[in-house]
Design a protein around this nucleic acid. Structure first.
Lengths: 137, 137
DNA sequence: CTGAATCCTATGGGATACTG
DNA sequence: CAGTATCCCATAGGATTCAG
């Protein structure tokens, strides 16, 4: 037995996921694609094509090598990116989007459109919400 | 002053967001819609319509009232859901998807489709990855 | 019923330093 | 260059309890 009691923190999605919690069918995808760093990475890879570790690191700018490695590994495992290792000195590794990863492109496109069309409303909603004073019961 | 130094943990998206880190234009949307509980909630609201707190709570099954409240508040502020308070005894509150929230439906639909079409490949990729033994350099 | 208050922990992720 | 290894902390979120 790996866990005796209910694990706090973040139990659900990747784990006993579809238990029953989410009739919500998109849980898995969300976990896959929309975690903190996956989108920026995927985006960088998609926008600038095959590139090596350092390029990616610099492109994203705020990510640490540790985390970048972690995420890339996971994405590689999930089949979203392809890692190619060149045993030279100095070593060279290149990452690129896989075909599967590329299949997400339309999705990203839709997201971009939604942003363009509705992000303003969100901002407005926030202002409105913050302006109305006194907490509602 | 709420924060004096650079906040570790999860600094970026909601915060000094678009600094430069992400030319990735979908960062904001991701933050908005694809955070841990927002999708299940949105889904429940969309699938079963206007409903009250407890219904939602039970529907989602694994969420605690505290977190449910937090997320609902945020989503209300973002204009994704509408909260209606009925000052009766016992008090009654109903939540429903806003028009803005509804505008996400196509997106969810695309995600569902992607799931249906490609989630198998992800699973396969994982098996393949785990099967190839020995860590790559 | 609807939530606010407390307390607590697992997890992600930043910083830094070190190897092959 | 491409990571790994440590250390360490902030935060999300679970459990539980209490209140209007």
């Amino acid at each position: 037995m790996t866990e005796t009691v209910s694990p706090p923190g973040r139990p659900a999605r990747g784990h006993a996921a579809a238990v029953q919690a989410e009739a919500c069918p998109i849980g898995p995808v969300v976990d896959l694609v929309f975690s903190r760093w996956t989108t920026p990475i995927l985006w960088a890879l998609h926008a600038f094509g095959r590139q090596r570790f350092v390029e990616l690191e610099r492109r994203i700018g705020t990510i640490t090598p540790k985390v970048l490695t972690q995420r890339l590994r996971q994405m590689e495992r999930d089949g979203l990116v392809v890692r190619t290792y060149y045993p030279e000195v100095p070593p060279r590794v290149e990452y690129e989007i896989s075909e599967l990863g590329l299949s997400l492109a339309p999705l990203f496109h839709h997201l971009t459109e939604w942003s363009r069309d509705h992000l303003g409303e969100v901002a407005a909603a926030r202002v409105a919400y913050d302006d109305r004073d006194g907490p509602m019961p």
